[in-house]
Design a protein around this nucleic acid. Structure first.
Length: 661
RNA sequence: GCCGUUGUAGCUCAGUGGUAGAGCACUUCCUUGGUAAGGAAGAGGUCGUGAGUUCAAUUCUCAUCAACGGCUCCA
């Protein structure tokens, strides 16, 4: 007998060799039907795998992340079985479950065969058919030699490649029905758990993620234990689509793009420009208070500047090709820093000038690969909330911390509560290619940043190979309301450019020293930030950001004059206001204004005109009642001045649709 | 850049080897209406672009551009 302890503290005795699935069954048939896998002493394994020792057991169901992962992993195997039966000779690479998007994929080499949407439907039917066969996922431990032989006979070089890195004794095969795969598991008990199947897309994926390798075919899918859950999921995707910044941006007249202008080049429409100006105002106010000075620099510069900065050797692929004038090459700037460095070096600097903080909403051009462009999130002309802080080593920690504080201040204003700070480090193997070849300085600076983060108790994760070419950085990852994850803000240390530009200041002891440079962009770029805000607020911008803040809706044209009077009062109070003077009924005017997400609607008719009042309606909330015009102005002005945002307006959708790991 | 899909009116989408339709939006007129769609009429597209096949191409073929879903890369 063995002793099994459960999460609720209960301990029960069972026969040696019993499986978690059997234990579930002994508790209740219903539980057995839901048990996908088991956590044994914290390790996830098959519910069918016998237990021979005392253990802590947790039965994993659909409600556990590990249960879901196991379910999707087994679904990937089921899909592979279907693919193999429809397309014999296919060779498989790997087929893991994914969190974001939820589901799984399998990478495979289909030879010359191309897979189509119709094939996906056929595969879905095949998968359902196979699932109904109620095949058990059977685990078998295999000696390495035997495994190698199996895949050699099958002619599957991909699995052989996987085997290369595995030791004898840790190799297992899983079989369900006619399909056997090299796999460490775990898997669900049998295929009948998989009730609802949707293969979502076909994509190319480089073998081992390396673009120099062959491209395999990747099929994405998602499965559920019931049809209802699949339907709910598809419904949520529809909801998420409505909140897509590309759709909202068009509907609300925020931005547009045009073939004749070029891919990735955003045309900001009047409504979008209002938002840009409000954001810049916020940045200017904040930076002014934090001791920054504003500068303005040109969009282009001579080649030599970028040779000095190091951009050409390390960043050239991301820059537009140069234009040549009188034998001199000029580049569009991809970064503002070199220009700012030249402002630093334009005058002799002393320690008394430091820290010198130069800020600019700089316009940068980056020749992103065509396949990378994505709405406002990834563009080729961007406006960066940029600044460079030149400081001494002693000042560094405080300055770096102050930048972090600025992020947090902004996040509070925008109600951003889900984010991760990511310490991005260099990859020693890519020194000299992707990173400036200064191994000691890299380590030293990385330690410097790590220390600031630890001392200030700011939680962060570390990622190798994500640093800028000139130094480590803190990137802030955020999620939009529909689950898109991306880097918003960045706070970078630069130990390289100062020396490359011969930047110097005179110390207290009359010696010369090179400053450290902090590159920072708390609001990222206008493009990405507004793209984020559109999804974050579902287009319902807080009043201070709303392109149109108030719309006056006269009941009929008899009250147009009064509406115009109200409009003047609001305009005089610097509130963005318009009158809806169309020949429409009030219901229609309200509907259109609601859809345009204008925060305040003022209905004016006979009684409002007689009493000098307005009937106030708040977008999404309905009628707020009668207000004196001056009271309404005070209310709206306060909301604007406080930059307040109503959190309850941004109920988020939890199903993620897109992610960068 | 690579793999795949798509490209018809401002938007959402039908449709066809014989040079195109719907709803919404837009314009005009009627209606002067009290908190999410009043009525009528009208205007709008050489069907992404270029070539090829054909008596004839928006439809078939090829190329190209762009968008979308991924891969790779990044704010």
């Amino acid at each position: 007998m063995i002793k099994i302890s459960f999460p609720d503290g209960a301990v029960k005795e069972y026969e040696t060799g019993i499986t978690p699935f059997e234990i579930a069954k002994s508790i209740s048939e219903g539980l057995a039907k839901k048990t996908l896998a088991a956590s044994v002493n914290g390790k996830v394994q098959d519910a069918n795998r016998p237990l021979y020792l005392d253990a802590e057991l947790k039965l994993l169901t659909w409600n556990d992340d590990d249960g879901k992962s196991t379910f999707w992993h087994s679904s990937a195997h089921l899909m592979a079985e279907a693919v193999e039966s429809l397309f014999p000779g296919v060779k498989f690479w790997v087929g893991p479950p994914t969190q974001n998007p939820p589901g799984f994929y399998y990478d495979m080499d289909l030879g010359d065969r191309q897979i189509t949407e119709e094939d996906l439907r056929r595969l879905e039917s095949k998968m359902s058919e196979l699932a109904r066969k109620n095949e058990t996922y059977t685990r078998k431990e295999i000696p390495k030699a035997e495994a190698v032989q199996y895949f050699t006979e099958k002619g599957d070089e991909y699995k052989l490649d996987l085997l290369k890195n595995l030791q004898d004794g840790e190799i297992s095969f899983y079989t369900q029905g006619d399909f056997t795969d090299l796999c460490r598991g775990p898997h669900i008990p049998n295929t009948s758990f998989i009730k609802a199947i949707k293969l979502t897309s076909i994509a190319g994926a480089y073998w081992k993620g390396d673009e120099n390798n062959k491209q395999l075919t990747r099929i994405y899918g998602v499965t559920f234990p019931s049809q209802k859950e699949l339907d709910d999921y598809l419904l949520m995707l529809e909801e998420a689509k409505k909140r897509d910044h590309r759709k909202l941006g068009k509907e609300l007249g925020i931005f547009t793009m045009d073939d004749d202008v070029g891919p990735g080049l955003v045309l900001w429409m009047p409504n979008g420009t209002v938002i840009i100006e409000e954001l810049e105002k916020l940045a200017k106010d904040t930076e002014m208070a934090a001791g920054y000075k504003r500068v303005v620099t040109p969009h282009i510069a001579k080649e030599n500047l970028y040779i000095t900065s190091g951009h050409l050797p390390y960043y050239q692929d991301s820059m537009y090709p140069p234009m040549e004038l009188d034998g001199v090459k000029y580049y569009l700037k991809a970064m503002n820093c070199p220009h700012h460095h030249k402002i630093f070096s334009a005058e002799p600097r002393s320690y008394k000038d430091l820290p010198l903080r130069l800020a600019e909403y700089g316009t940068c051009y980056r020749y992103e690969q065509s396949g990378e462009l994505f709405g406002l999130m990834r563009v080729r002309c961007l406006h960066m909330n940029d600044a460079h802080i030149y400081c001494s080593k002693e000042q560094f920690a405080q300055e770096f911390k102050a930048v972090n504080d600025m992020y947090l201040k902004y996040f509070k204003i925008f109600g951003i509560d889900k984010y991760i700070m990511r310490l991005s480090l260099h990859d020693p193997e890519k020194l000299g290619q992707k990173y400036i070849n200064e191994p000691e300085l890299w380590i030293e600076t990385e330690n410097l940043v790590r220390q600031v983060m630890i001392e200030n108790k700011i939680p962060f994760v570390e990622v190798k190979g994500e640093g800028a070419f000139y130094g480590p950085k803190i990137d802030v990852q955020i999620w939009s309301a529909i689950g898109r994850e991306f880097t918003l803000a960045t706070n970078q240390v630069d130990f390289a450019q100062g020396r490359r530009f011969n930047l110097e200041f005179t110390t207290r002891n009359n010696e010369t020293e090179t400053p450290l440079i902090i590159h920072r962009a708390p609001l990222g770029t206008h493009e990405r930030f507004i793209g984020f805000l559109l999804e974050h607020y579902a287009g319902k911008f807080p009043v201070w950001l709303a392109p149109l803040q108030v719309k006056v809706l006269p009941i009929s044209d008899r009250y147009l004059d009064y509406a115009q009077t109200v409009l003047q009062y609001l305009k005089n109070a610097d509130i963005r206001t318009e009158v809806d003077d169309r020949n429409e009924k009030i219901g229609k005017k309200i509907r259109d204004t609601e859809i345009a997400r204008v925060p305040y609607m003022l209905v004016v008719g006979e009684k409002e005109m007689n009493d000098g009042m307005v009937s106030v309606r708040r977008q999404g909330k309905g009628d707020l009642g009668l207000f004196k015009v001056s009271d309404l102005i005070d209310k709206v002005r306060k909301e604007i001045n406080d930059r307040s945002s109503e959190i309850n307006e941004r109920e988020s959708i939890n199903i993620p649709t897109h992610s960068t790991p």
